[in-house]
Each structure stands twice: as structure tokens, then as C-alpha cells.
Design a protein around this nucleic acid. Structure first.
Lengths: 111, 111
DNA sequence: CGCTTGCGTAAGTGTCAACTAAATCTTACG
DNA sequence: CGTAAGATTTAGTTGACACTTACGCAAGCG
């Protein structure tokens, strides 16, 4: 999940992902979409996306066709929905905070 | 939205956000939770989160209380749901791709 | 007023990541 | 085989960023 969020933090990668969201595209077609950037750079971005599991790669002759893996994005959505409000760690944190409050709150809060 | 994703790409900031998800906490309490990092570092993280609109800051005497802004997170969820499959840019891209396919596909696909 | 508490800011450092250019690999074709 | 096309890989550079140390600033207390 860390890799997923890091991959999505880069705008260029988001756009790549959008391009291959509904269809397969060869690396060159993707690169052509970014006039001001090298093919090499795009290839590296694709590497990151693939490492994060956000795209799949299929070979056809000399070409490599990329497509988004939408299920991975859904996983991210579930993560974002659950991370903040669930889990044992969460309970531990609240308990700790309560403890801390108890130890240092006396005579601290004004009004 | 760019700022939001960048802010969330950092694990430490995600944890901070989780700490203040359901309650207000002063900066020091937050910092105490990360034994291996300086208070200053946490303060800077809080600055990033605040700049991204992910937390709100309230002052109480010398203390500053932080809390997550959950609505901002929901905005992000909506963004992730819509970005890939919507918008005029999307249509433009598909049209372009079709054009490109038309211009260079002849005698290209093997088998 | 001096002093302490709670925090942010400034400056400096090390590390990582995005990019370019050049080299390499693979497949296809004469 | 020799060559060309499609694409990744490998240095090497540059900028961003997470971190630490040191300092500054405001609010409360004696």
C-alpha cells in the first residue's frame, strides 16, 4: 500500500494510469502523449507503476502493452476507508492517549 | 488534490493523521508518539498536513491542538473514484489514440 | 520582570527520486 | 548474419524532502 500511494503521488504517473485505464497501450503511444518528456522517463514510470501492481504488462512481439489493474485501485480505496478508524493499533493509541491525559492534564486546561 | 496525495505518500504523516482522526491532540502529544523522531520533524509534518487541508489547527493558550479534517479525505475518495473514468480530457485521449491506431497500425500487428 | 512551557522557523545535511543521454537487450525481417 | 524498431537499463545530474540542531516567539506563572 505504501508503494501504491507513493506511485500515485506523482502526477505524471496518474496520467499514465488514466491513459491505460480502459485499454491496452504500447509504451511508445504512452510516451508520445508527453511531448516534453523522454521515452526513458516514461519507461521508468511504468516500472514504478508495475512494481506497485498498478499496471500489467503484456508482450506482443517487440512491443509491450500496458493496462491498468483496476482491482488494485479498489484495494487502495478500501484501505483509505478503513485505515483511520480500525484495527488494534488504533485502540492501543487511544488507550495510550488516555493514559497520557490522565498523567498531565491536571491544572492544565484553562477556563 | 496533488498536495493531498503527496502528503499521504509519507507513512509518518499517515500515522499522525490516524492519531488525530477522532480527537484533538496537542503537537507535543503527537510527537511523543514517535520516539525516534524529533519534535521539530513532527511540527514540519503537521505543517504539510495543514497546508494540504488535511488537519485543522486550534490554539489554546500556548498549545496548538490538531485534528483531522475527515471531509478532505472523503474528497480524495471521490477524486480517486472519478479521475480515471470521467471528464472531457478522457474523451480527447481516446479519440487521439484511435487516430494514432489508424495511422500506424497497417501491417504492424503480427499473426 | 525573569523563567518555563509549548511550538514554529532557519539553516545545514544526507538521501531519494525524476530526469537525460548513452548503452543494451529482444524480436523481426531481408 | 546485419540491421532496424520497440523498449528497458545504466550511469550521472539535479532538485525535492525528511531530518537534526539551534534559535525565536508567544502565553502563562512565580
Amino acid at each position: 500500500m505504501d508503494a501504491t500511494l507513493k506511485a500515485l503521488a506523482e502526477p505524471r504517473r496518474r496520467e499514465i494510469l488514466r491513459l491505460v485505464w480502459t485499454r491496452e497501450l504500447p509504451a511508445t503511444s504512452i510516451a508520445d502523449h508527453f511531448g516534453e518528456v523522454t521515452r526513458s522517463a516514461i519507461s521508468q514510470h511504468l516500472g514504478v507503476l508495475k512494481a506497485a501492481g498498478l499496471v500489467s504488462e503484456r508482450r506482443d512481439g517487440t512491443r509491450r502493452l500496458y493496462q491498468a489493474r483496476q482491482d488494485e485501485m479498489h484495494k487502495l480505496r478500501d484501505f483509505l476507508d478503513n485505515y483511520w478508524t480500525s484495527g488494534l493499533e488504533r485502540l492501543r493509541d487511544v488507550a495510550e492517549a488516555a493514559q497520557q491525559e490522565k498523567g498531565s492534564a491536571d491544572g492544565r486546561t484553562h477556563s
